[in-house]
């Protein structure tokens, strides 16, 4: 398989990473994404990851779990994950599969997802100040 096509681009936006999934996911692509994303988070010391899945029309249990584990991995590396733009059919499928992505933040679109990330990071900084004052 073509190696260049086998990657989902990860864009850096300030202290966040932006992943837009525009193609149908298959298992190997998902694995590659996990790999790349964790590497980039460490590389750029990112505070947040925004995954846009508005073009994703289908999910299976593997991809669903992948989204959950990406979130867990990011959290371990101190980055918040926000999944945005999930289609109704995809959401129903995920629930039926028993994957409710309990640790993942969600938003309707990229714009709202960005404000969620901004809010969370700002909050974190405030929290840090508060801690140091104590």
């Amino acid at each position: 398989m073509d190696n260049i096509m086998d990657r989902i681009p990860i864009l850096k936006m300030g202290q966040f990473l932006l992943v837009t999934i525009q193609v149908d996911m298959y298992d190997r692509l998902a694995m590659a994404l996990q790999d790349d994303l964790t590497t980039k988070i460490v590389e750029h010391n990112s505070k947040g990851v925004l995954i846009d899945i508005s073009s994703l029309e289908m999910v299976d249990s593997f991809i669903g779990r992948m989204l959950g584990s990406v979130a867990s991995m990011s959290r371990m590396l101190d980055a918040v994950t926000v999944v945005v733009g999930m289609q109704p059919a995809v959401a129903i499928t995920m629930v039926e599969l028993g994957l409710s992505l309990s640790g993942v933040r969600t938003a309707l679109n990229v714009e709202q997802g960005m404000s969620v990330l901004n809010g969370l990071v700002a909050h974190e900084v405030e929290g840090a100040d508060y801690d140091s004052e104590e």
Partner: peptide, 10 residues
């Protein structure tokens, strides 16, 4: 289920 699905969509 409905609540979870809505939450997944944000």
């Amino acid at each position: 289920k409905t609540v979870s699905a809505a939450r997944l969509m944000g």
